[in-house]
Nucleic acid binder design. Structure first.
Lengths: 226, 226
DNA sequence: CGCGGCCATATTGTATACAAATTGAACAAG
DNA sequence: CTTGTTCAATTTGTATACAATATGGCCGCG
């Protein structure tokens, strides 16, 4: 894509993911254009893309707001992601070669380094994790699958809650990657799919638990104030 | 969406699906704008959408062409569609109510009328078929699943080859819909998923066979000319 | 008071002018 | 004849002006 529309997309997306633009906030084209330092034209393009990724919702009268997701929505997204990344792993198992295995091992070593640092670097973990999943997706060799998953991965919630991972959970994630690599190396498609789907579902449950305790503590705050 | 960009989207899409714009054809914004009777701005918007549905491909230098799909690409799309529509059927089984069943029966009756006409009306069949699948998808109640499937259904090839369906194949399709309704009525999620996935996969094989004989006859033509 | 239509204002949609980038052809050098 | 380079023409990207539409408050009426 072109420069200005890239800037607009990256800027707006970043502000949504970081929470600077909170769920429900009204997004006006002109205001965003000022923020991004470009005109409305590239902003509009960026907004269409963000809408297709469900980071934005538009009312019937074409006004835009930052999407607010219910826990059900989030579970839905994780469920579909588990399904499709599972398929990607299955396909990758029958297509991967030695160099692909090697690349995955290098990437997963980065994951290991990130979690073994003290304190563990969540940012590096998330980045290496993203690379790992991207490599498998690329190996699956389905352009269409890539496009479908693109709208499911890297959602605001994921990135904001990555910081809630415990040391054990990070370690477990790293370990599951290792198991997946072994399954792929052996060409065991069914097992690779199972591991991947479980891996994603586990991520949801970590999130759901964090969400739960967040709600609980909010409730406690309410009581305290009352 | 707005009017002019809707016109642009519908017009260009129609010309791609009908084959008036053939795979590989270069698409220039200004030329399309003239064809659609609107300015480049809404055309650009329409093109972005078509690109996201893979009806268009863009080169690294942002020139656009009508996508040309290989048989593998098409199989890929059908495979993912089978997977996701299967999930939709599974979810629908546990959410559908009596009125939903009734709606499906009405729609499938339309399918029946279309194929029993003499000659069978393929256009009406395709439209009723589309409605049937849309109703199930809506019943599944996942906004995200709808969005994902949107880019997989109604692809050019499907509509052009619908006319290759034999009377038996049309009848079989109608019958499978009936089976699916029964599975949904009984709340048998697994069976509903299986029927739906098989239903879609069968559609691919009908297409693949037609494609095969098309290639064979083209080859025959070549030999004749030589 | 509450309700419903009307108008000023705010916001999005479209067209167009201009800027940047890419292409392809002419042409010079090897 | 091939290769590389330059430049005009084509095409896409961006900004901006203007048109269409939606919103929210105001006022009059019941």
């Amino acid at each position: 894509m072109s420069k200005a529309s890239d800037i607009a997309y990256a800027t707006i997306r970043e502000k949504i993911i970081s929470g600077e633009l909170a769920p429900g906030d009204n997004l006006r084209e002109e205001a965003l254009a000022e923020i991004c330092g470009v005109s409305r034209t590239p902003v509009r393009e960026a907004m269409r893309k963000l809408e297709s990724e469900l980071l934005l919702r538009r009312t019937e009268s074409q006004r835009s707001y930052v999407a607010d997701w219910s826990l059900d929505d989030i579970e839905d997204a994780f469920e579909l992601r588990a399904l499709l990344e599972g398929v990607a792993a299955r396909r990758a198992a029958s297509r991967i070669d030695a160099s692909g295995i090697a690349r995955l091992e290098v990437i997963n070593a980065s994951v290991g380094r990130a979690i073994q640092a003290s304190p563990p670097s969540v940012v590096e973990f998330l980045e290496a994790n993203r690379e790992f999943h991207a490599e498998i997706l690329a190996t699956a060799g389905s352009r269409r699958l890539e496009i479908l998953l693109q709208s499911l991965i890297e959602q605001p919630i994921i990135w904001r809650t990555g910081h809630h991972y415990s040391a054990d959970e990070l370690k477990r994630s790293h370990h599951e990657h290792g198991e997946l690599i072994k399954a792929l190396e052996r060409g065991d498609a069914g097992w690779a799919e199972t591991i991947m789907a479980g891996h994603i579902r586990r991520a949801f449950h970590v999130y759901a638990d964090a969400h739960q305790s967040m709600l609980a503590s909010e409730e406690a705050d309410e009581r305290k104030r009352a």
